[in-house]
Amino acid sequence: MEVGKTKKKELVKIKSIPYKDFKNNDYLEEMVRELHENGVNVVVGALDEAINWGRGNSLWPLTFATSCCGIEFMSVGAARYDMARFGLEVARASPRQADFIMVAGTITDKMAPVLKRLYDQMADPKYVIAVGGCTISGGPFKHSYHVVKGIDQILPVDVFIPGCPPRPEAMLYGMMQLQRKVKLQRFFGDVNKKEVSEKEYEERMKRDMTANS
């Protein structure tokens, strides 16, 4: 018996973001290049570059997942998608040793203080990726009484990865965007906590990096 015989349907054309939009991954770099045209101190600049190369290529995630997106995050680490290729596989269970937190899954009112505390426990410099609709806006649970409508209310988010849940490829793309962003930050006098006061530091972390280059 043939299966597809019942109703042959023509293939549905899926509307999506055009592929060329995914190809301008360098837009961050370009923006910074423009801003840097006046020149920076050579020594500091070179040192910064070396440090940022190291920081950008060595981002260790915190093992953190609350729901569906967590399973996809596990898939990213597993054999087919293998985030180890980018050196991202050293998932640390202790927040002290992690560099960024993938907030994978819905954050509820009860979880919000815990998440904030986890973030506070991480050592600087630290980053946040919001994965999935729930962390971006509350997603399908936006009207619930117990769901935080977007974790940007409580944490400074660096990268948003939309989806419900995002595909592993999307997560990889998001993590690579974070790598780009890290590589473009200035370590000295910017994300190095010791040089500025606590409050100013928080401010700077929240601000978009392109604003103070």
């Binding site: 190291g54 920081r55 060595s58 050196g87 560099d99 426990q121 370590f187």
Partner: peptide, 13 residues
């Protein structure tokens, strides 16, 4: 090497 650089500049809590 990247990991070492990262580790060296990471905050010690």
């Amino acid at each position: 090497i990247a990991d070492v650089i990262k580790m060296l500049i990471k905050e010690i809590i």
